[in-house]
């Protein structure tokens, strides 16, 4: 584990090729590493550094800026409870307390069996559905204490396995570009005027509104 698997290296090369500069693929590749292992290990960052052609320090520098990248293992289910303004007004903090109580861990902690990690998070863009939370970045709107307890039960029983993949997996659908349809990345150097501008007649000068 930790270094990218051969399949993921193939995928990583495909992703890198979409960008004009390889370093732009850093965040997507860190997501890939996190999807593989559930967190981002140091070995994975070193491997990504090689693939992208930057130093490991640069990868750690980028990785450590972003909250979603976990550099230590977290629970299978990451429970992010929003306590920002709209949720605060409708009981977000009380919901967080309930979550902490039910799971027996404080925000930032992981249950001893490694199933759940709880986080107290900023607005997750579901403000009209307050109080809300995410489990592995899948939404639960207008959550009641009973609703949360049911959610935990369902997760433990594996009833939501279809809908909520284990931590690390974000989108389960990847962008796939058929080879015959690729336009290709636009290199920042040496580019000319795009064909569709060059091929059309210049605007007539008098046409000013």
């Amino acid at each position: 584990m930790a270094r990218l698997s051969p399949d993921n290296v193939t995928l990583a090369r495909e992703i890198i090729a979409r960008y004009p500069r390889p370093k732009s693929a850093l965040i997507p590749l860190l997501h890939l590493a996190q999807e593989q292992d559930g967190w981002v290990a140091t070995d994975a960052m070193e491997h990504i550094a090689q693939l992208v052609g930057v130093s490991p320090a640069e990868v750690i520098g980028t990785c450590s800026f972003y909250e979603m990248f976990k550099r230590e293992p977290v629970g299978t289910y990451l429970v992010n409870v929003c306590t920002n303004i709209s949720c605060l007004l409708l009981g977000g903090e009380e919901l967080l307390e309930h979550v902490e109580h039910t799971l027996g861990v404080r925000a930032g902690g992981t249950t001893p069996d490694g199933s759940f990690t709880v986080e107290d998070v900023e607005c997750i863009a579901a403000c009209t559905e307050a109080p809300c939370l995410q489990v592995n970045y899948r939404y639960r709107h207008r959550v009641t204490p009973e609703g949360f307890d049911q959610l935990v039960e369902d997760l433990r029983a594996g009833r939501l396995a279809e809908e909520i993949p284990p931590h690390g997996t974000l989108a389960r659908i990847r962008q796939r570009v058929p080879a015959e349809r690729v336009a290709g990345p636009a290199s920042p150097v040496g580019g000319g005027e795009p064909a569709w501008l060059a091929s059309r007649p210049a605007p007539p000068p008098e046409k000013v509104k």
Binding site: S24, M68, L170, R176, V177, A195
Partner: peptide, 27 residues
């Protein structure tokens, strides 16, 4: 992409464009 709306030669014209889907990571 499959249907010819994105990528090379969009709808049979000389307009070509790749749209790269990129996700952030919390910030």
């Amino acid at each position: 992409y499959e249907a010819g709306y994105v990528g090379r030669g969009i709808l049979g014209t000389d307009f070509s464009l790749d749209i790269v889907l990129h996700w952030g990571a919390g910030a």
